[in-house]
């Protein structure tokens, strides 16, 4: 029982990280039809920026260091994403292959630069004591970082839904996901919504970078790419363009991966996620939130 609880919470935690990456990917695809391979780079650069900031602060101010790294990660993620959209994506408007290639190039270059600057070995993260401790839940000792990541992802989901459902820009984004040309034909400068969606996606990815650092206790240059692959799967399973679909798919993928990696064999969970993707695409080509055609 306690193992099940631990696996469930760990899987949810992993799903929470996937969701934070997938939400932005999904909105960016839905609105702009850009597969943003640079999203993993937002994650990685934010994680390293957070770590650098934390290292620059007094060694024993652990909570301060972590909170500063959190803010730095979010801001750096947002800035990096905004610059990517305005400098690299925008000039290639409507040239989708070019846009995809540019994001792949940016991802590869960023990883190489981070490796060059910080080495490819994992770096240990300084965490407040509470984050290295556990909480007893259903008989299991649950690492507090799991709970933290889940709570923050739930908050982000609520904020995103509020943005999409209750604000004018959210309305523009939802409409743009359906029919971008018609949004323009209503006199709306959809370009601003593109930049905004990139900034929001970068924020969430940056947040994921810092939270993943706490979740795993370390950062390394390759994790962004590894997480990005599963986040893409989450986006497709959830239905391209749907934040709620991404949230549901992220939970499913995180749980499947954890349970099968534990009860079957390491690696089986990862493989099962690919099968799950294939299965969903066969039954519902539009993903969970999409139409079945």
């Amino acid at each position: 029982m306690s193992t099940v609880a631990l696996l469930a919470i760990t899987g949810l935690g992993l799903g929470a990280l996937y969701f934070l990456i997938a939400a932005g990917l999904s909105l960016i695809w839905g609105l702009m039809r850009v597969l943003n391979f640079a999203h993993g780079a937002f994650f990685t650069v934010a994680a390293y920026a957070g770590w650098v900031a934390s290292e620059a602060l007094p060694a024993d101010a652990l909570w301060l260091r972590w909170l500063v790294s959190l803010v730095v990660g979010i801001v750096v993620g947002a800035l990096f994403a905004t610059l990517t959209e305005t400098i690299l994506i925008r000039p290639l408007y409507a040239r989708h292959i070019g846009q995809v290639l540019v994001t792949v190039g940016l991802a590869l270059a960023t990883i190489a630069l981070v490796e060059g600057g910080f080495g490819s070995d994992p770096r240990k993260i300084a965490l407040p004591e509470w984050m290295t401790a556990t909480t007893k839940l259903a008989g299991a000792a649950i690492p507090n970082t799991r709970l933290l990541v889940i709570a923050i992802a739930a908050l982000v989901l609520a904020l995103l839904l509020y943005f999409l459902q209750r604000t004018r820009y959210g309305l523009i984004v939802r409409a743009g996901v359906e029919n971008r040309a018609m949004v323009m034909a209503l006199g709306i400068d959809v370009q601003k919504a593109f930049t905004l969606v990139f900034a929001i996606g970068g924020m969430a990815a940056g947040l994921a970078g810092v939270l993943a650092a706490a979740y795993y206790g370390t950062i390394d240059p390759g994790r962004g790419t590894a997480m990005l692959i599963f986040a893409f799967i989450v986006v497709v399973i959830g239905g391209l363009g749907s934040v709620t679909g991404s949230a549901i798919a992220a939970v499913i993928v995180g749980l499947v991966q954890q349970f099968l990696n534990f009860y079957a064999a390491a690696g089986v969970g990862d493989f099962a996620v690919i099968l799950l993707l294939a299965g969903v695409l066969l039954v519902r080509p539009g993903g969970l939130a999409g139409s079945s055609t």
């Binding site: 004018r168 939802r174 040309a181 034909a185 709306i188």
Partner: peptide
């Protein structure tokens, strides 16, 4: 080209 996923009110508000 109405926005099918949006309500009637939302379609008008967007316009």
């Amino acid at each position: 080209d109405v926005f099918g996923g949006l309500t009637v009110d939302e379609n008008l508000r967007l316009a």
